[in-house]
Amino acid sequence: MSFKTTVITILIYFYAACGATAQEPTNYSAKNGLPTNHVYDVQEDKDGVMWFATNRGLVKFDGKNFKAFTIKEGLPNNDVWELYLDGKKRLWVFSKSRYQSYVLNDSIYNFATSDGKTISPAPIYEVDNALWLRAGYYKFDGAEFKVQNDYATFYHGGSQQVFQKHGLNAEAAAVSYDFIFNQYFLIKDGELWFLNADGTVLKK
């Protein structure tokens, strides 16, 4: 084998090795530091630190080590489903509980629902610096998650009436309700309807 052939062969092996490495991610699991393999969610905090929601608590990863936060550290529930970094750079930690939490400087701060009900995490809305939880329509007022009764009552009781008024079958259409602005969105046959809470058409 000539010198040139040897060099090319080495380069090909090197190139292949680089390619193989590049395509294989690093796996973090219970085998190398994670408290569990069951990971729901991931979020980066304002300092670039990674956090994971798991069924065995909230897990912080500083690039080298994992640190778990559980009930012992003040979490309301070890089965953490959802993380959210809000506009104020607070890392929220959501679980099925009557308390929801944020973490700041490795301390857990818990906030109750105003009606004492246990809620399941659902998509979080942030509008005009206010944090809302769609599960039951709670708005965080700085001290607690205050239930917005009008919205909840309307959403669960009013939708069928709105649809029937227009001869629409809600099940046949994509529909959602914007409880912040009191609007229904309804998509039927590719057409978008905006309806007021009382069923009047805003725009079709």
């Binding site: 991610p25 569990t36 393999n37 969610d41 670039g48 994971f52």
Partner: peptide, 22 residues
């Protein structure tokens, strides 16, 4: 679920196998 962080790394979550970092 996966998330791309501010450094351009992607963190991918699974329910059975932990986390995968690209």
């Amino acid at each position: 679920h996966a998330f791309k962080d501010s450094r351009g790394h992607i963190w991918a979550c699974s329910f059975k196998k932990g986390i995968f970092l690209y």
